[in-house]
């Protein structure tokens, strides 16, 4: 069997990830996280904070909880069940930053945590900021040309 045939054969027999099970799980867990966040938002709203502060505190609470669960060694178990359900909300990003930091702790705070904290989230940060800058330039140019608001 030549390499091409073998690759095709191996890919064909490999069991695919069961989307039919994973998608509803992601939907339920992801939805539950968002519903919980909405509840927090409403509660914080009752404290009489400004809308901006309420939004920020809601995100901060979710980040805190995700990092706490990561530290307790529970988050990865929930994520193995939920998949995109925990990955897509801000909880996934928090876990992606906290988990390398925990791992790298044994190599010290500078070359360990400092250097490795963004090994997973780094691409999101780099290209997220990069896209933001690009969008800003386009927006500013269009405005200067008198197009759009």
């Amino acid at each position: 069997m030549d390499r091409k045939t073998y690759k095709r054969y191996a890919a064909a027999r490999a069991k695919k990830s069961p989307s039919i099970v994973n998608c509803p799980r992601a939907f339920l867990v992801g939805g539950a996280i968002c519903a919980f966040a909405q509840l927090l938002r409403d509660l914080y709203g009752l404290l009489g904070w400004e809308a901006k502060t309420v939004g920020m505190m809601t995100s901060a609470t979710l980040i805190f909880l995700a990092v706490l669960l990561t530290g307790l060694g529970v988050f990865d178990k929930i994520a193995a069940f939920a998949g995109a359900g925990t990955l897509v909300p801000i909880t996934g990003f928090a876990n992606a930053v906290a988990s390398p930091a925990i791992d790298a702790r044994t190599e010290g705070f500078v070359l360990g945590v400092g250097a490795k904290i963004f090994t997973v989230a780094g691409p999101v940060i780099l290209y997220g900021i990069g896209t933001g800058v690009l969008y800003g330039i386009v927006y500013a140019t269009l405005r200067a040309a008198g197009i759009g608001g």
Partner: peptide
């Protein structure tokens, strides 16, 4: 896990293979 894949506590799903 640390060396070949993701951090130990990173949450993700693995393929069946």
């Amino acid at each position: 896990e640390r060396q070949f894949r993701f951090p130990v506590e990173y949450g993700g799903q693995r393929p069946p293979t």
